Deep mutational scan, measured.
Amino acid sequence: NNDALSPAIRRLLAEHNLDASAIKGTGVGGRLTREDVEKWLAKA
């Protein structure tokens, strides 16, 4: 759900042209964290 994304995470996803639904969030309530996105980028 994009409503649950912080502005910083939205920007990070946009910079790398990523789809938030492709990344499993580990934050509160399954929210994406910066670490989630960075780990996903490291694997890609």
Rank of each mutant, 00 (worst) to 15 (best):
residue 1 N to S: 14
residue 1 N to A: 12
residue 1 N to F: 03
residue 1 N to E: 14
residue 2 N to K: 11
residue 2 N to T: 13
residue 2 N to R: 12
residue 3 D to V: 09
residue 3 D to Y: 00
residue 3 D to P: 13
residue 4 A to F: 15
residue 5 L to V: 10
residue 5 L to T: 06
residue 5 L to F: 06
residue 6 S to E: 12
residue 6 S to W: 09
residue 7 P to Q: 12
residue 7 P to V: 12
residue 8 A to P: 05
residue 8 A to K: 08
residue 9 I to Y: 05
residue 9 I to F: 06
residue 9 I to T: 06
residue 10 R to Y: 03
residue 10 R to A: 12
residue 10 R to W: 01
residue 10 R to E: 10
residue 11 R to M: 10
residue 11 R to V: 06
residue 12 L to R: 05
residue 12 L to Y: 06
residue 13 L to A: 04
residue 13 L to S: 01
residue 13 L to Y: 01
residue 13 L to V: 04
residue 14 A to G: 07
residue 14 A to I: 10
residue 15 E to Y: 10
residue 15 E to S: 08
residue 16 H to C: 07
residue 16 H to E: 02
residue 16 H to S: 03
residue 16 H to T: 01
residue 18 L to I: 15
residue 18 L to R: 02
residue 18 L to K: 04
residue 19 D to T: 09
residue 19 D to M: 08
residue 20 A to E: 10
residue 20 A to N: 04
residue 21 S to I: 07
residue 21 S to R: 11
residue 21 S to A: 12
residue 21 S to F: 07
residue 22 A to Y: 09
residue 23 I to Y: 00
residue 23 I to W: 01
residue 23 I to F: 01
residue 24 K to W: 05
residue 24 K to G: 06
residue 24 K to V: 14
residue 24 K to E: 12
residue 24 K to S: 09
residue 25 G to N: 02
residue 25 G to E: 02
residue 25 G to V: 03
residue 26 T to R: 03
residue 26 T to V: 03
residue 26 T to L: 05
residue 26 T to E: 03
residue 26 T to Y: 02
residue 27 G to E: 02
residue 27 G to M: 03
residue 27 G to R: 02
residue 27 G to L: 03
residue 28 V to F: 08
residue 28 V to W: 05
residue 28 V to P: 15
residue 28 V to H: 09
residue 28 V to T: 11
residue 29 G to H: 09
residue 29 G to E: 08
residue 30 G to E: 04
residue 30 G to F: 00
residue 30 G to M: 01
residue 30 G to A: 04
residue 30 G to V: 02
residue 30 G to D: 04
residue 30 G to I: 02
residue 31 R to P: 03
residue 31 R to A: 14
residue 32 L to S: 00
residue 32 L to P: 05
residue 32 L to N: 00
residue 34 R to W: 15
residue 35 E to M: 08
residue 35 E to P: 04
residue 35 E to S: 09
residue 35 E to F: 07
residue 35 E to D: 10
residue 36 D to V: 01
residue 36 D to W: 02
residue 36 D to L: 01
residue 37 V to L: 10
residue 37 V to N: 00
residue 37 V to Y: 04
residue 37 V to W: 05
residue 37 V to A: 04
residue 38 E to G: 03
residue 39 K to P: 03
residue 39 K to W: 12
residue 39 K to Q: 13
residue 39 K to T: 08
residue 40 W to M: 15
residue 40 W to P: 04
residue 40 W to N: 10
residue 40 W to F: 15
residue 41 L to M: 07
residue 41 L to A: 03
residue 41 L to E: 03
residue 41 L to G: 00
residue 41 L to P: 01
residue 41 L to N: 01
residue 42 A to T: 13
residue 42 A to F: 06
residue 42 A to N: 12
residue 43 K to H: 11
residue 43 K to I: 14
residue 43 K to F: 11
residue 44 A to P: 05
residue 44 A to T: 12
residue 44 A to E: 14
residue 44 A to W: 15
residue 44 A to I: 15
